[in-house]
Amino acid sequence: NQASVVANQLIPINTALTLVMMRSEVVTPVGIPAKDIPRLVSMQVNRAVPLGTTLMPDMVKGYA
Protein backbone atom coordinates (compact mmCIF):
# COMPACT_ATOMS: atom_id res chain seq x y z
CA ASN A 1 0.00 0.00 0.00
CA GLN A 2 1.14 3.49 -0.80
CA ALA A 3 1.87 5.90 2.04
CA SER A 4 0.07 9.24 2.09
CA VAL A 5 0.92 12.59 3.66
CA VAL A 6 -0.72 13.07 7.07
CA ALA A 7 -0.71 16.20 9.26
CA ASN A 8 1.67 15.78 12.20
CA GLN A 9 0.04 18.73 14.02
CA LEU A 10 -2.79 21.21 13.58
CA ILE A 11 -1.91 23.24 10.48
CA PRO A 12 -3.73 26.62 10.46
CA ILE A 13 -5.27 27.97 7.25
CA ASN A 14 -2.78 29.69 4.89
CA THR A 15 0.21 28.16 6.70
CA ALA A 16 3.24 27.28 4.56
CA LEU A 17 4.04 23.60 5.03
CA THR A 18 7.33 22.47 6.61
CA LEU A 19 8.75 18.98 7.03
CA VAL A 20 7.89 18.83 10.75
CA MET A 21 4.19 19.37 9.97
CA MET A 22 3.93 16.22 7.83
CA ARG A 23 4.46 12.49 8.17
CA SER A 24 3.85 9.52 5.90
CA GLU A 25 1.30 6.88 6.80
CA VAL A 26 -0.66 4.20 4.98
CA VAL A 27 -4.26 5.43 5.26
CA THR A 28 -7.64 5.06 3.59
CA PRO A 29 -8.65 6.96 1.57
CA VAL A 30 -5.29 7.60 -0.08
CA GLY A 31 -4.25 11.25 -0.12
CA ILE A 32 -1.21 13.06 -1.53
CA PRO A 33 1.57 10.47 -2.00
CA ALA A 34 4.33 10.58 0.64
CA LYS A 35 6.94 10.83 -2.13
CA ASP A 36 5.60 14.35 -2.81
CA ILE A 37 6.53 15.65 0.68
CA PRO A 38 9.62 17.53 -0.64
CA ARG A 39 7.41 19.24 -3.24
CA LEU A 40 4.88 20.29 -0.57
CA VAL A 41 7.41 22.22 1.53
CA SER A 42 6.59 25.97 1.35
CA MET A 43 3.16 25.35 -0.25
CA GLN A 44 0.21 26.74 1.71
CA VAL A 45 -2.87 24.92 2.95
CA ASN A 46 -6.19 26.53 2.00
CA ARG A 47 -8.02 25.34 5.14
CA ALA A 48 -7.20 24.36 8.71
CA VAL A 49 -5.89 20.78 8.76
CA PRO A 50 -6.38 18.95 12.10
CA LEU A 51 -3.75 16.61 13.54
CA GLY A 52 -3.90 13.19 11.90
CA THR A 53 -5.79 14.41 8.81
CA THR A 54 -4.73 13.02 5.43
CA LEU A 55 -3.70 15.82 3.09
CA MET A 56 -5.73 15.74 -0.11
CA PRO A 57 -4.68 17.53 -3.33
CA ASP A 58 -7.46 20.13 -2.99
CA MET A 59 -6.18 21.19 0.47
CA VAL A 60 -2.84 22.52 -0.81
CA LYS A 61 -2.65 25.68 -2.93
CA GLY A 62 -0.89 25.03 -6.22
CA TYR A 63 -0.61 21.26 -5.79
CA ALA A 64 -3.46 19.90 -7.89
Rank of each mutant, 00 (worst) to 15 (best):
residue 10 L to P: 09
residue 45 V to E: 00
residue 27 V to A: 06
residue 56 M to P: 01
residue 41 V to C: 11
residue 7 A to K: 00
residue 2 Q to D: 15
residue 23 R to G: 04
residue 9 Q to S: 08
residue 1 N to A: 15
residue 3 A to N: 13
residue 44 Q to P: 07
residue 50 P to L: 07
residue 62 G to H: 10
residue 20 V to T: 13
residue 45 V to P: 03
residue 3 A to Y: 12
residue 57 P to H: 10
residue 18 T to G: 04
residue 64 A to S: 14
residue 13 I to P: 10
residue 45 V to R: 00
residue 15 T to H: 07
residue 59 M to T: 06
residue 37 I to D: 00
residue 43 M to W: 11
residue 45 V to I: 09
residue 22 M to T: 02
residue 5 V to Q: 01
residue 17 L to D: 00
residue 24 S to P: 08
residue 28 T to L: 06
residue 43 M to E: 04
residue 59 M to G: 03
residue 45 V to Q: 00
residue 36 D to T: 04
residue 10 L to K: 08
residue 12 P to Y: 12
residue 3 A to W: 14
residue 42 S to T: 14
residue 50 P to D: 15
residue 53 T to N: 10
residue 53 T to D: 12
residue 48 A to G: 06
residue 15 T to E: 06
residue 24 S to L: 07
residue 35 K to P: 15
residue 12 P to H: 09
residue 35 K to Q: 15
residue 4 S to N: 00
residue 29 P to N: 08
residue 52 G to N: 12
residue 29 P to W: 05
residue 44 Q to N: 05
residue 36 D to R: 03
residue 15 T to K: 05
residue 41 V to Q: 08
residue 45 V to C: 09
residue 10 L to S: 11
residue 43 M to H: 06
residue 39 R to G: 13
residue 45 V to K: 00
residue 34 A to P: 14
residue 39 R to T: 10
residue 47 R to Y: 12
residue 24 S to G: 10
residue 63 Y to G: 03
residue 36 D to F: 05
residue 20 V to S: 13
residue 2 Q to K: 04
residue 4 S to V: 02
residue 14 N to G: 13
residue 55 L to F: 11
residue 37 I to H: 03
residue 55 L to W: 01
residue 37 I to G: 04
residue 30 V to C: 10
residue 5 V to H: 00
residue 17 L to C: 02
residue 38 P to Q: 10
residue 24 S to M: 11
residue 9 Q to K: 11
residue 15 T to P: 01
residue 10 L to M: 12
residue 23 R to P: 01
residue 42 S to K: 10
residue 52 G to M: 08
residue 49 V to F: 02
residue 2 Q to W: 13
residue 64 A to I: 13
residue 26 V to P: 09
residue 41 V to I: 10
residue 51 L to F: 11
residue 21 M to S: 04
residue 46 N to V: 08
residue 61 K to W: 13
residue 22 M to D: 01
residue 17 L to V: 04
residue 53 T to Q: 08
residue 32 I to T: 01
residue 14 N to W: 11
residue 42 S to Y: 10
residue 19 L to S: 08
residue 29 P to Y: 12
residue 11 I to P: 01
residue 60 V to D: 00
residue 26 V to D: 15
residue 47 R to L: 09
residue 50 P to Y: 12
residue 46 N to W: 13
residue 10 L to C: 13
residue 22 M to A: 00
residue 28 T to D: 15
residue 59 M to V: 07
residue 30 V to N: 12
residue 26 V to G: 05
residue 11 I to D: 00
residue 34 A to W: 14
residue 26 V to I: 12
residue 38 P to G: 09
residue 59 M to R: 03
residue 8 N to E: 11
residue 32 I to Y: 02
residue 28 T to G: 06
residue 7 A to W: 02
residue 46 N to C: 15
residue 11 I to N: 00
residue 54 T to L: 05
residue 15 T to W: 08
residue 32 I to E: 00
residue 14 N to T: 05
residue 36 D to G: 04
residue 22 M to V: 06
residue 8 N to I: 06
residue 37 I to T: 09
residue 40 L to P: 01
residue 49 V to C: 07
residue 31 G to N: 01
residue 54 T to A: 06
residue 6 V to S: 03
residue 49 V to S: 02
residue 13 I to Q: 08
residue 49 V to T: 06
residue 33 P to Y: 12
residue 39 R to M: 12
residue 12 P to G: 12
residue 8 N to V: 13
residue 6 V to N: 00
residue 11 I to L: 12
residue 36 D to C: 07
residue 44 Q to D: 04
residue 40 L to C: 07
residue 34 A to D: 15
residue 21 M to R: 03
residue 34 A to Y: 09
residue 5 V to I: 07
residue 35 K to E: 15
residue 47 R to E: 08
residue 37 I to R: 05
residue 51 L to Y: 14
residue 16 A to E: 05
residue 50 P to Q: 14
residue 18 T to C: 05
residue 35 K to N: 15
residue 21 M to L: 07
residue 35 K to I: 14
residue 50 P to A: 09
residue 15 T to N: 04
residue 11 I to W: 02
residue 21 M to K: 03
residue 24 S to H: 15
residue 13 I to L: 09
residue 44 Q to C: 10
residue 58 D to S: 10
residue 58 D to C: 14
residue 5 V to K: 01
residue 44 Q to G: 05
residue 51 L to K: 09
residue 52 G to A: 09
residue 51 L to R: 07
residue 6 V to H: 02
residue 16 A to V: 10
residue 28 T to K: 04
residue 26 V to K: 04
residue 11 I to A: 01
residue 62 G to A: 13
residue 12 P to L: 10
residue 59 M to A: 07
residue 63 Y to H: 04
residue 52 G to Y: 07
residue 2 Q to C: 15
residue 64 A to H: 11
residue 14 N to D: 09
residue 47 R to N: 07
residue 7 A to D: 00
residue 28 T to M: 07
residue 48 A to C: 13
residue 4 S to M: 02
residue 63 Y to S: 03
residue 4 S to F: 02
residue 30 V to L: 12
